[in-house]
Computed example of a mutant assay.
Amino acid sequence: MFDLLFGRRAAPTDNALPEVRNVTIGRTIILDPLAWRRFGGALHFPFDGDTMQIVAQGLVELGEGGFIHRFYTDDDVMFQAVANDRAGRELTDVTIFAPWRSSYPSRPFERPAWRERLTARSFTDEGLPEYRRAWFGDEAARQEPVTFWEELHDDRDGIVDRRIYQTSMLFARDVEGEGRELLLAIDQENEAGEVSFEIMLGMALELGEFRA
């Protein structure tokens, strides 16, 4: 009865949230903080811990057959693994992102203006330098962002607890010492129609720079 009242879906017969290199809800990720500390004060990346306690997990199925696996802490730090398969065995990219700023539009013009910022060659925000478009390159003056639904889970029963529609673009800047800092700009809307604008800063990780 409660499942019907609150709209929870039946658990899939194959169950299981993927464990990506042993990372899933309830696990702790141990990070090598030298992955970003070696760049000293050149970064704006707002995270300096060495562990992440995972309390939620997201899954995105990309149109071209890839998958994005996302793992979240209580304070919305995100560990992201891109893979060629749903099980997360064939990883192509691993990153960690931490929130920089969230805002909530209250006037009609704010959302179109934010969406337009996501199409530009470069992106900046108060307190940040310029980041150049990383997805699709920055040759074109304007580039449409990437859109997808993310299915989010609060436990490992395989039932989708909520879905969020996201429009996003990835930007990056080079950091002295052969580093690269990432900026993910997102327009997100949940199934209740609530909208927020998110800026997250991140760093790429090598496979040897984390374990769970």
Score class of each variant (00 low, 15 high):
R162E: 15
G49H: 05
D93K: 13
A56T: 01
Q57N: 07
E150T: 13
E130A: 11
L128A: 10
T28S: 14
G193D: 10
R173H: 05
I29V: 15
A83G: 06
E130H: 04
R142D: 11
I68M: 10
G202W: 02
A16I: 11
D48K: 02
E64K: 00
E206K: 15
D75C: 06
T28M: 15
G58R: 01
Y72T: 07
D75G: 02
T13V: 15
F67A: 09
E176V: 14
P129E: 03
A42W: 04
R121K: 15
T147Y: 01
H153F: 07
E198H: 11
E194I: 07
R133H: 11
R111D: 04
A87C: 05
A16C: 10
T147V: 14
D157Y: 04
R117G: 12
W135Q: 11
A192K: 13
E116P: 03
Q80F: 00
I96C: 07
F6L: 10
R163C: 06
D161S: 14
F109G: 07
E151R: 09
P108H: 11
E126C: 02
G202L: 02
G137N: 05
R21D: 12
Q53G: 07
F171E: 14
E189H: 01
R163A: 05
G66H: 06
L128Q: 14
I159D: 02
F136I: 00
D76V: 12
L4N: 08
E198P: 00
